[in-house]
Structure formats: C-alpha cells, structure tokens
Computed example of a mutant assay.
Amino acid sequence: MALKFYTLDVFTDRRFGGNPLAVVLGADDLTDTEMQAIAREFNLSETVFVQASERPAHSAKARIFTPKSEIAFAGHPTIGTAILLAELTTTAHNGEKDALIVLEQGIGTVRVGARLRAASAAFAEFDAPKLPEAAGVLPPHDVLASGLGLIPSEVGFENHAPLCYAAGHTFAFVPVASLEAIGRARINGPHWERAFEQQGISGVYLYTRQCEHTSASFHARMFAPQVGIPEDPATGAAAIGLAGIIHHFDRLPDGTHKRVLEQGYEMGRPSRIALTLMVNGGKLATVRIGGSAVRVCEGTLER
C-alpha cells in the first residue's frame, strides 16, 4: 500500500527556512510501531500521521511523532498540517481560500484558521489548547549556565529569571543577556544532564530581547535532546509557554498584545512565530500562535 506524503517548511514564507515537517496522509492502517519507524526515517523534529476524524464535523485526526516518541501536541505540526489540508481540500473563491481546519490531537481538539492567498505564503493560526502555567523548579543560575556553556552573569536580564512553564509540554525557559551569548549556548555534555535532565522537561528554551531584526520582540533557541531534537528551528509549543513568561515578568495590562519571535538563525533556518496574548482582569486569557508554511516536496511511502 502506497501512502502519500508531503514535506513543508513551517514558520517561514520561503523554502529551506523555518522548521521542516513531514505529513503522511491516509495513515489509518499504520501501527504505532510503523509510524514511529517512519518518523525515524524522516528524522525531522516531528512527523504527522493524518487519519480519519472520530467526529464527522472535524477535519482529521493528527498523530504527532518525534524521532523517538509520540507526543500529544506541537505547534509547527499543527500549523503545517492545517495549511496542507486547507490547500488540498478547500475550493478557491476569487483566488482566495479561507478554511477552519479542526484537528483531533492527543491534547484535545485544536481549531486552526488558515488563510491562503495566491501572492503570498499560506498563513494559519490557532488558540493554544492549554494556557501556560508555572511548573517545577530549576537549579541555581551557575548550574544552568554551566549546562549551556555560558557564565552565570549571562543568564537573566532585567527582571527575567529562569522558570519552568507548561502548556501541554514543560519547558525550562532561560533568559539570556545578549544575542552574542545566546549564539554561543550549547548542550554542554554532563553539565547539561545535571542542569536539565533531572527536571522532567521536554526542552530548554533560551530567549533574549536582542534580535537579528527590529521587527522581532525576542530571539530564541530551543534544545531538546531528550526527545531526539538536538536543536529546533521553531517551537510553537514553547512559544505558548513563553507567553506565560512574558505575562509573568512584563506584567502586561489588559488588552491584546502581539509579539514576533525569531528562532532558527543559528541553524541557518530563520523562523518567525506570531504570538498574540490576550489579558483580561490581569490574567492571561488567550494565547494564539500563528505562522506561514510552504510546501517543499511530495511523494509516496511503500508500506
């Protein structure tokens, strides 16, 4: 049996940037073992297997695998899969396509709005299925800095300090003082294990206010060797957690706040994530993630 697959670059408006994604269609008859083996073969941060939805009103069921394991939710697979399904199933009107793609994921139902225009890259956005919340305690600054190959004075800026936040996945959020320092950060052998691998986290998200582009609010990097991702070019799930960090430290007033996150530059895969925070009554009420995606290639898998 041959299965159709596509690859897309997500959180970018051009090929060979952003975060690569593989999407396998018609995957209903694949076993868990087969899906994991295919994800290892693609060897991308995530591979999505599209299956028939359990509810007729929904678009599809989407199962997401890293090279090592299945996960309940991730941002760039949600954006990329929704854009692909919108392109394949939506009829154009006056050269434009707008679609609501409803995906059944391990975390729950995720509704994604997709906007397709002939003159620009497709764009999609969704409300986070879970709001970020504080989760866990991190070691002291010197231990964290050593794990990243930095010095303690390079961890933290302004009032921002390292914290763990979760929104389906738990990440360690480590503020870094400068763009130069974040560029030197690395997985620093056994020091990394001491700093991060005993915390039960999905990954380590570094961020700084210093950016490559003036249109961006934060420059970020994300390391997740525990799940087979040495470094990720764009991490939507972590961006949801960053919304909690921003609200916690920057004390945003009620209203809608938009931020642009840049990531992947150190990997040669520039990415841009649109982050929207809605604050009501002093509390974070909604987090929205948006981004573009472009198709790169397509083919068939022989089962």
Rank of each mutant, 00 (worst) to 15 (best):
A237L: 05
A293P: 04
I273N: 00
G291R: 03
G282L: 06
V260L: 15
V287L: 06
K283R: 15
I245R: 07
I240R: 02
A238V: 03
P253Y: 11
G268D: 03
Q263I: 08
L275M: 13
E298W: 12
P230L: 07
D250H: 10
L261H: 02
I273L: 10
D232M: 05
V296H: 08
P230I: 05
P230R: 07
I273T: 05
R269A: 09
E231R: 01
V294G: 02
A285R: 12
V260W: 13
V294S: 03
P233S: 11
A285E: 14
P233N: 06
E262C: 10
G290A: 13
A274E: 15
G268F: 04
L252H: 02
K258T: 15
A274G: 14
I245L: 15
G290T: 12
R295M: 12
L252M: 08
E262R: 07
R259H: 15
A285D: 14
F249G: 02
P230G: 04
I245C: 15
I289A: 04
V294Q: 02
S271N: 00
V294F: 03
C297S: 13
V294E: 02
E266Q: 10
D250Y: 09
K283P: 08
T256D: 07
G299A: 10
L261P: 00
H247N: 14
T256G: 02
G291M: 07
R251F: 11
N280F: 07
E231K: 00
H257W: 12
Y265R: 08
G290K: 06
K283E: 15
K258V: 13
K283V: 14
P270W: 05
E262T: 07
L242Y: 07
A243K: 02
V287K: 01
V287C: 11
V296A: 10
G244E: 06
G291H: 05
P270L: 07
P233L: 03
I246F: 09
T286N: 11
K283A: 15
L277E: 01
S271Y: 01
S271H: 00
P230Q: 06
R259Y: 15
V260M: 14
L261C: 06
M278L: 12
E298P: 10
M278N: 13
G291S: 09
E266Y: 03
K258D: 15
P270E: 10
V279G: 04
H247Q: 15
P233D: 06
